[in-house]
Design a protein around this nucleic acid. Structure first.
Lengths: 143, 143
DNA sequence: TGTATTTTGGTACTAAAGTATGAATAGGTT
DNA sequence: AACCTATTCATACTTTAGTACCAAAATACA
């Protein structure tokens, strides 16, 4: 079932329940055998439960749409002067590839990769590729 | 304010509000100038809002206590036959240290670290330290 | 068109990382 | 005591990684 249809259905049911509840309350007030306080108490409990359910449903959908967690910090990439190609290399380092493997994947020589990496290390202020991966995750410059 | 005191205070206020609401409803039913339906409607809205608030408050505390996210998979560590010392080395690799730095931190020679790492690579089925870090995070064997 | 940046690649090193093998020691188990 | 595992370390090597320096294209830009 689509989320929209689900929501519409849910709210329809809730409104229906409310109407029935109101009619019941009105009717019961004129039947002496049942205490008015009792009916009102039951109605209050049902309404509070309805509120809890409603809040839960709304929040559940909110969590789903407020999900974007791994957002890349483009500004920092620019401020560090990291080029697109360097970023690509950094990404592959973080996936555990060797310099030779990165070169093959990008169709360039290993020398080129080494150059990119050396430049990256300066920009990231690190000495090793393991540290580069840690930094890249710290400043959110890789996914 | 302590969490317990906060909760007690909160529920006290809620009960008080309910009592007032009930009295109000009862009283209003005998005042002809205000429609009973209107009073009931207002009461219903307040009660639903109360339910939403209540649900939110309860869930908030639940989230706090269901916090433990990064749990180490001890079973897998045992099944892979990874020793405590090897695990320690793996942890330091994941922090970006070199073999020499790890040796200094653990007061052993670099040779020893290399031995540990070689054994680790076999157990983790990887070829490089960057891959080892990835694996260690995949199987939750480091924090 | 000229200039700046990016991308590419080479050479020549130095430094780490990783492998293979063997071996000594300490601690716990049977 | 004999046995096993974890830990330690060394030597000798091979392979990657990383640095320094230079330089040619390609691309972007004004």
């Amino acid at each position: 079932m689509s989320p929209l249809l689900k929501t519409v259905l849910r709210f329809g049911l809730i409104i229906l329940a409310l109407l029935i509840l109101f009619q019941l309350t009105n009717a019961s007030l004129f039947i002496p055998s049942i205490s008015a306080d009792f009916v009102i108490g039951i109605a209050a409990i049902i309404l509070i439960a309805l509120g809890v359910y409603l809040g839960k449903a709304v929040r559940k959908e909110k969590v789903v749409e407020v999900k974007p967690s791994s957002v890349i910090d483009e500004e920092r990439i620019l401020s560090l002067g990291i080029s697109p190609r360097e970023l690509e290399v950094l990404q592959l380092i973080s996936e555990g590839l060797s310099n030779q493997e990165i070169g093959e994947k990008l169709f360039v020589s290993e020398s080129t990769i080494k150059t990119h990496i050396s430049n990256l290390f300066v920009k990231l202020d690190v000495k090793r590729r393991t540290q580069a991966v840690i930094r890249a995750n710290e400043w959110r410059i890789i996914p």
